[in-house]
């Protein structure tokens, strides 16, 4: 958190219930959150966690069923009108038969900033696509166009809803490099993702969402420790006799055995690897970083597995 103390985004007891044919669906179930000016925050969660609905409410696209939302102390709609917040939307949002240049000029005109067309296109890397029809652009190019549109009002708060969904690795890296450049001047960024790596690489703070609730909220590095179970897998002669020995190592949570293959779960992956290779004669060793799934498993099981 920076020292300015200004609150960019404040959510209190936020709830959203959709009425579907099969009954009410609770998309957001009591979310409390404050984001200070200048922070970069990741909303991390699986599909259906309530990320998009929460962001839609912050943008004034969806009205909450209960609770309150403030963007720079006002309503989301006021913040949108004042150019204080803009967003890269997950999908849609573009007219297929307009050119890239026309799209940027229309949105710039509606914001009353026609002079920023060139700058926004350059920063998002779509200048050379100006004459191309939107329908002829790749998914990554369309996402860069949406990014250009989001940069037009020069917003102090930028919201990104799974901005790299559907991009290949190269396009994803290029996108986050462009984003880094945009945050140097103190822009607040809130983004939704279901990639743990994106949260780790880009957001000092991560909010874990699941089924419309906040499971954890803190520095991303701490979160990693919190859910930091790595798995060490190795082939081990006489594995059955070694399970107890492995379980006794500090930081080991669980050991699974299938024939000669053992899977050790825990935080002390270095120590486990050393013991396996040097003392027990293990080979074909693999270490895997925690996945979002394992993170959620760890968090929900700590809560007593109520879900």
């Amino acid at each position: 958190m920076n020292g300015s103390g200004e609150i960019a985004l404040r959510l209190r007891g936020l709830r959203k219930v959709y009425h579907a044919a099969e009954g009410p669906v609770v998309a957001v179930d009591g979310v409390d959150l404050e984001v200070a000016s200048g922070e970069i925050v990741a909303f991390l969660g699986p599909n259906g966690a309530g990320k998009t609905t929460t962001l839609d409410i912050c943008l004034g696209l969806v009205a909450p069923t209960g609770g309150s939302v403030e963007v720079f102390g006002g309503t989301p709609r006021d913040a949108v009108r004042a150019g204080q917040v803009s967003a890269v939307l997950q999908s849609g949002g573009l007219l297929r038969d307009l050119t890239v240049g026309e799209t940027v000029r229309v949105i710039a005109a509606l914001h009353g900033v026609p002079e920023r067309v060139g700058l926004a296109m350059e920063r998002a890397g779509v200048t050379e696509l100006a004459r191309r029809k939107v329908q002829a652009c790749s998914g990554g190019e369309q996402q860069r166009l949406r990014f250009a549109l989001a940069l037009l009002p020069d917003p102090p708060l930028l919201v990104l809803d799974e901005p790299t969904a559907g991009m290949d690795v190269g396009a994803r890296r290029a996108f986050w490099e462009a984003m880094h450049a945009e945050t140097r001047d103190g822009r607040t960024v809130v983004f939704a993702t279901h990639y743990l790596e994106e949260a780790q690489a880009f957001a000092p703070r991560t909010v874990l969402l699941d089924r419309g609730r906040i499971l954890a909220d803190g520095p991303t590095a701490q979160l990693r420790g919190l859910v930091g179970d790595r798995t060490v897998v190795a082939t081990l002669p006489d594995a059955g006799a070694r399970v107890a020995q492995l379980l006794a190592l500090p930081g080991v949570r669980d050991v699974l055995r299938e024939g000669e293959r053992v899977t050790v779960t825990g935080t002390a992956s270095d120590e486990v690897a050393r013991v396996l290779l040097t003392q027990l004669g293990g080979h074909d060793l693999e270490i895997a970083a925690p996945t979002l799934e394992s993170a959620f498993l760890a968090l929900t099981s700590e809560r007593g597995g109520a879900a």
Binding site: L59, R81, G92, L95, I107, L110, L149
Partner: peptide, 16 residues
């Protein structure tokens, strides 16, 4: 049809 393509959401992020 534009609305169905999500253009309405994009416009809703402008002062229009």
């Amino acid at each position: 049809v534009e609305m169905l393509q999500g253009w309405g959401r994009q416009l809703a992020l402008t002062p229009l």
